[in-house]
Write a protein that binds this DNA or RNA. Structure first.
Lengths: 348, 348
DNA sequence: ATTGGCGGCTAAATCGTTTTAGATATTTAC
DNA sequence: GTAAATATCTAAAACGATTTAGCCGCCAAT
């Protein structure tokens, strides 16, 4: 019942704790401990089922073999995928992951950072909701291993792994333009200063602007997203002021838009086109299938992870505020295709 | 830079560590510490930004304010939702969550349990992939706070929060029967002994059995799910041996089935009906919308959490192996409706 | 015979808390 | 005026590991 400690093993074998510790940590060779003693210790370790108490180890070494992951909502498919892939990378190197969701609250984000640090996590991967990240900057300056993922700060030197959101927005806009859409609306998120969101919108709007088309941008608060999107369409239908295309800046907004269209009997893409950022598993077989920007999630994770590793092991290779920006991929599907009048649309 | 410790504060104020500790932990009153001293200490705590080192605290108290969550795959929408809701419940009470995905590997599950215990987690919520959970039983017997969620062991007394999977399977089968389907196939998961899966299948099969109809059950290995489902339909199409209805036992299988049908130009529900266990956000607005069983995720989490709390605080109220089984809800939608020949099906 | 080096091991300090068992001074009781 | 009670506060021992500094015996070299 009671866990067996280093001391227990030392007593059983009749050696010092030091010896046992060295053997268990594989440092026997380096400290000239005889193979015989080594074997005796390992035998006892196995026999009594000894496992080092990580807490004690952390206290002593200041390392915990734990990484923190902070995102806005771990139940969002995108962040859940990040979590899983990061977990696997971490596992490979003997780390575990402790997670926290902020619901875009800066206060909670700061609290989580503080708590994770007090837990001696060896590093934190963060998708920040902040606007002026002075605390983050200080944290990095102080040498704490921190990597931003998905969202970064263009003017603040913090190692980051992000995708090229601006180009993503541009690709979607250009595609809509090519398809002949001229009256687009962007459904975006509050807070709107978040880099990923802002850049997607910026890229999208700029392309239409170049074509002398003004784009309306609606910022939807994070927490009442589904209702607000439905309200948006209710209003627009009532005002007979419907856009001919919608750009949903993330997967939640895309899903909410599809739901709203269903409720209002708006047919995609006949009545309105839909494009969005992020992939969801059903986008490629839904009817209609959904035009979207695919993010290289696996690469995002492995880059973020190696940036973090670089800081933890302090190999000095990485520049202080390196931002790795990865390309995205436009997947053209049915939801943004101008079609004649084919209600029972089927893919070829 | 360097974190400020209890000792630092004690020295600054000119009192003992004990005093500071008591004040910080709000035990000043109980130990008769004067209000004046109390204020001085708190002032210093704030001034120097002191935060207790959780690691040291854990080592001393044996509690870590951390809970472990172990599931098969945190990126699965169902488990991601569980994680988020549990995280929120935990946060309320000052806990953080450390997570682990097993990919249904019993070995990894056991390793994670061991690791989490070495990290002094105060309790673990587990969706187990085991068949003979002797270790789990011993863990619970030893007094370690462990709660099973989603999957349980009918013959082993471990506190559990699950839904009534059997009834869920029955409801789906009865519905299909009523709709006139007579040739169903179950797409299930390997390992098939997992209680949730087994009971869903059992309920489903038994209803058809009562109607003298044999149900074929296909167990798909967890890791190559998408391809295997597609292969299943390829084979059946080739053999001209198509079922008239498919029961997908979880959300992954439902999605894989939809994808396979799309690839093979199989039209749901005209060519084949689809019902499944689990809700996904798009099930109620997809075309067709998908008949499914909704699990009471929020209740599942709050029950699991309070079972765990009960064990942690050891209030002795809970019976040793209490299994809480919650009802599920059948949501009949378009994917299982016998319709005439309406390709361009639309909801009313 | 002293010195130095080395192989094999250990005692004790340390990490930052919590908690136990008092210490000290001041009141109160009688 | 002494003993007991009370009000504040503290020293020191944990918790279970890691790590520093160094002990002890033996051999080789000078």
């Amino acid at each position: 019942m009671k866990k067996v400690t280093l001391n227990d093993i030392a007593k059983k074998v009749g050696v010092s704790k030091t010896l046992v510790s060295l053997v268990v940590n594989g440092k026997a060779r380096g400290y000239g401990i005889s193979g015989q003693t080594c074997d005796k210790v390992m035998a006892a370790v196995r026999a009594y089922g000894y496992n080092p108490n990580q807490t004690a180890r952390s206290l002593r070494t200041g390392m915990s073999n734990t990484l923190g992951l902070i995102v806005s909502d771990i139940s969002n498919n995108f962040y859940a995928s990040l979590a899983r892939q990061l977990e696997d990378l971490a596992w490979e190197l003997g780390y575990n992951m402790i997670i926290g969701s902020t619901d875009e609250s800066v206060g909670k984000e700061l609290k989580l950072l503080e708590i994770f640090r007090n837990r001696q996590v060896d590093g934190i991967i963060l998708s920040s909701s902040q606007q002026n990240p002075t605390e983050l900057e200080n944290l990095v300056k102080s040498g704490f291993p921190l990597v931003l993922i998905d969202r970064y700060f263009p003017t603040v030197p913090i190692p980051s792994a992000v995708v090229n959101n601006k180009v993503g927005g541009e690709l979607l806009a250009q595609h809509l333009l090519n398809q002949g859409f001229r009256n687009p609306v962007v459904l975006s998120l509050t807070p709107s200063y978040i880099s990923s969101v802002a850049e997607r919108v910026e890229g999208f709007v700029s392309v239409f602007e170049n074509a002398a088309i003004h784009t309306e941008v609606h910022n939807i608060p994070f927490l009442c997203l589904v209702d607000m999107v439905e309200d948006f369409f209710t209003t627009r239908l009532h005002d007979k002021n419907m856009p001919d295309a919608v750009f949903a800046v993330n997967n939640n907004l895309a899903t909410a838009t599809l739901r709203a269209c269903h409720v209002h009997n708006i047919v995609i893409p006949k009545d309105i086109a839909l494009v969005c950022f992020d992939e969801l598993p059903y986008f490629d077989f839904s009817k209609p299938s959904i035009t979207s920007i695919r993010q290289p999630v696996a690469e995002l994770c492995s880059v973020a992870f190696s940036l973090l590793q670089g800081q933890i092991t302090n190999n000095g290779e990485t520049k202080p505020g390196h931002v790795e920006m990865m390309p995205v991929e436009l997947l053209v599907r049915e939801s943004s295709t101008q079609i004649s009048d084919n209600n029972g649309w089927r893919s070829p």
